[in-house]
């Protein structure tokens, strides 16, 4: 059953959530609902701060994303970029690299959200 739940996912990996849920599919869906509600706001804050080159907010918001992405296995896809953004912002530098990494982060979030929505419909 766990394998079925986790099939055909290109970006997301629900192994961690499903493992912790001990078969409580309602919990997995609840966590995904919270993820879909909360993370777009976090990505928006990061985007705004990247557009404004506000290193303080970039740093804080990348840090927050870092603890959110492992829930759906997204750390394997964009963990490196999120870490890079946080490190660069801590040094108040590298806005061009931050922009490039953010582009990948945003694209991955969009794909992940679509996959999560499909998962919610199918389970």
């Amino acid at each position: 059953m766990e394998k079925n739940l986790n099939n055909d996912k290109k970006i997301i990996d629900l192994t961690y959530l499903i493992g912790l849920s001990k078969g409580d599919n309602g919990f997995v869906k609840k966590m995904i609902t919270v993820f879909l509600e909360e993370t777009p706001k976090e990505v928006d804050v990061l985007e705004e701060s990247v557009n404004q080159t506000d290193y303080e907010v970039i740093k804080a918001s990348a840090h927050k994303l870092k603890s959110t992405i492992p829930f759906i296995g997204l750390d394997k896809i964009i963990g490196k970029e999120v870490n890079e953004i946080e490190s660069l912002a801590r040094e108040n530098s590298g806005i061009e690299n931050i922009r490039a990494s953010f582009k990948k982060i945003k694209e991955s979030f969009e794909l992940a959200s679509a996959e999560l929505e499909a998962f919610m419909l199918n389970n």
């Binding site: 912790l20 966590m31 603890s67 829930f71």
Partner: peptide, 15 residues
């Protein structure tokens, strides 16, 4: 402060 982390911790402790 992170809602996902809150729910996860609460679910684990309750379990």
């Amino acid at each position: 402060d992170n809602v996902l982390n809150q729910k996860m911790a609460s679910f684990l402790l309750k379990g």
